[in-house]
Structure formats: C-alpha cells, structure tokens
C-alpha cells in the first residue's frame, strides 16, 4: 500500500527558466499513475509544519528571516536558489506533509510512504538555503522520528551530496546518513573521509563516485561499504532521500542510471528497512520523463507492482573507486576514533 498525500499545488514556487519547477511534480504523479495502484493508495491531507517541528533542524532566526524574505517578495538567495512570495508557505507545507505521511505510516503499521513535494531539501543547512533547497524536508522527518526515540537511516541516492542533511546530523549517533553521489560535483562535500562527528563516528557514509558511474557500481558501493554499517546500526526507520538526477537523461549531472537501476536500489533498501517503516522523499530530478519513469520504477519495486523498466546500466567507471573509498574510510575511522576516545591509531 502506498501511503502518500494529496497533490501539493506548488505553482507559486517558480522562477522562469529554472529547472526546479512545478512541472516536476506533475511528472512524479504521472509516474505513480503509471503503476495503476487503484485502491492501494492512501492520500493524507497536505499540512504545514509547525515552527517547533522545523526548529529541530533549522535555526529559528533562519526561519524568521526566510519567512520575512518571502513575505517581501523573495528573490535570489544564492546563485542557484530562489524564493518567491509563496515559497515560505510552500516550504512549510512540503516539510509538514512529510510528517503527515510518517504519522499515517505509524498509525497503520504497514505500507510504503511517498512524499512528493518541492522545493527539495537535502542541501538546506541549519541556517542557510542552498542548491534549490529552503527547508530540509527529510531532515525534519528524521528529527521527528528521532525525538520519538527512533534510530533513523537516511539513504540519499540523489546524484548530489546531501550536505545539509549530513551537517544537520553530523554529531547525532541516532541518525545514520548514507550518500552515493557524483564527485567532483556541487556541493563539493561528501568525500569518503567524512565519516561523522566525534559523537557520531561512523554514522555518516559517503560514496563519491565518478561521472559515468552505472547502476552496478552504485549498488556495489552501497552494498559493500554502507551495507555493514547499516547492519550494525540496525535502523528502526529508513528514509530515502530520493533524487532522480542521476538518471542518464538528466541534464544536471553525469551518472548513467536508468529506471531499472532505481528499482534495484530500492530493492536493496527494502532488504533492510523494517516493514511499514520506510518512506521515500523526493529530492532532485530535472528531466521530466526520466523522473516519471524513475519514480515508477522505485515505487513498483517497493510495492511489488508490475511496470516496464529500462534495462539496468553496467560496466561504467568507479569499481576501483569503491576499493579506495573503503580504504580511506578505514584509515579515517581509525584516526577519528583515536581522537574521540584517546585510542592509539
């Protein structure tokens, strides 16, 4: 069963010519419709996140200033990121709807959560908008679960590193952040040596992979490097920070993934996520057809729904990089542990 929400009208958050645009959500919902789930879909109402819910991950002064900036008509927050008059209420709805879906999942104890909102979130820092993101939706969700005593794994397969999410939970031992991303690429962070803060050593796993990386390499990195960390962490909830800009047709980056690859990644997540405790949060994805098919592929796998998938990609660069990531993580973990616990490296 798909636990999702009423369609968010995001038309007020738009900057002509900007790739992070309202039509993205139309493509996502078209992907859901392609699965013909019929009665197997629950849609909760859209709701706004409250200040206290947002303040778990954002500085209150940032929330105030962002709200005021939008109220005055908005503008450019940095070279990539815009806000309009409507962006603040929409960002509150985006984050709040992510919480509403979690509540419904919790109430039912079954199903797969799906949150298709914008603006996206994973670049948003505690006190700064960045990379098209204003409020960090997946972080707001993870922080809510965390405050209820849960252990949360965030699997971020957007092609860009989710620097905001990583920074927000850098020192939190109860949130595991895993990211597979193209590197070098914006935002420039996410090297293998970033393994978590001193109070959360080994709670951040970064898998920086080269341009051209194919699905087999991304999966190998996740399975071989992140897999054991996830097993050890044993999350009670799993959230996917699901950007689909790693699709081979996406104009924003150069991974070679297909809808079949996203389905395969989803199967991997399904292997360790607890039933009824898995939710998918939309991040990037800027080619509308690729977005539609990738959403369909991901949800089809999670819901056992039949669909037609693009062939999985394989044979791309990055296999040797996986070995280097493992070596670099190991060396860094030894150093950081020595620093944290006074052990000899």
């Amino acid at each position: 069963m798909l636990i999702t929400h009423e369609i968010l009208d995001s038309s007020g958050h738009e900057d002509p010519g900007h790739p992070e645009r309202p039509a993205r959500l139309d493509a996502v919902w078209a992907g859901v419709a392609d699965l013909h789930l019929d009665g197997d879909v629950v849609r909760v109402p859209v709701r706004s996140a409250g200040r206290a819910e947002l303040a778990r991950v954002h500085e209150p002064v940032y929330l105030d200033q962002l709200g005021a900036f939008c109220f005055e008509g908005g503008g450019e927050l940095d070279a990539d990121t815009y806000a309009t008059y409507d962006s603040w209420p929409l960002a509150q709805q985006a984050a709040g709807t992510g919480l509403a879906v979690l509540d419904e999942l919790h109430r039912r104890g079954e199903g797969v959560g799906f949150v298709a909102v914008r603006p996206p979130g994973h670049h948003a820092l505690r006190d700064r908008a960045m990379g098209f993101c204003l409020i960090n939706n997946v972080a707001v969700a993870a922080a809510a679960l965390r405050s209820a005593g849960e252990r949360v794994a965030i699997i971020d397969w957007d092609v860009h590193h989710g620097n905001g999410t990583q920074a927000i939970f850098w020192n939190d031992p109860d949130v595991l952040y895993v990211s597979a991303h193209e590197w070098p690429l914006f935002p420039g962070s996410g090297v293998a040596a970033e393994v978590g803060g001193l109070t959360a050593v080994d709670r951040t796993v970064n898998l920086p992979l080269p341009a051209g990386a194919t699905g087999d390499v991304v999966l190998q990195a996740l399975e071989e490097v992140a897999g054991p960390v996830i097993d050890d962490f044993d999350p009670t909830w799993t959230l996917i920070s699901a950007g689909f800009d790693g699709h081979r047709d996406d104009p924003m980056a150069d991974f070679a993934l297909t809808s079949g690859d996203y389905a395969r990644l989803a199967r991997w997540v399904r292997g360790f996520a607890r039933p009824g405790r898995l939710a998918v949060y939309l991040e990037g994805g800027y080619d509308l057809d690729a977005l539609r098919h990738s959403v369909a592929g991901t949800l089809a796998e999670l819901l056992d729904a039949p669909t037609t998938l693009e062939d999985r990609s394989q044979g791309g660069p990055g296999v040797d990089q996986v070995a280097r990531i493992r070596t670099e993580r190991k060396a860094t973990l030894q150093l950081v542990r020595a620093q944290a616990f006074g052990e000899a490296p």
Binding site: G75, E76, L77, R128, A129
Partner: peptide, 11 residues
C-alpha cells in the same frame, strides 16, 4: 555575491 538579500541573517 549574486544574492539579493542582505546576507547577514539568511546565512
């Protein structure tokens, strides 16, 4: 840089 806000509090 290019940002139109005053910068100080929006990060």
């Amino acid at each position: 840089g290019h940002a139109t806000h005053s910068g100080r509090l929006l990060g």
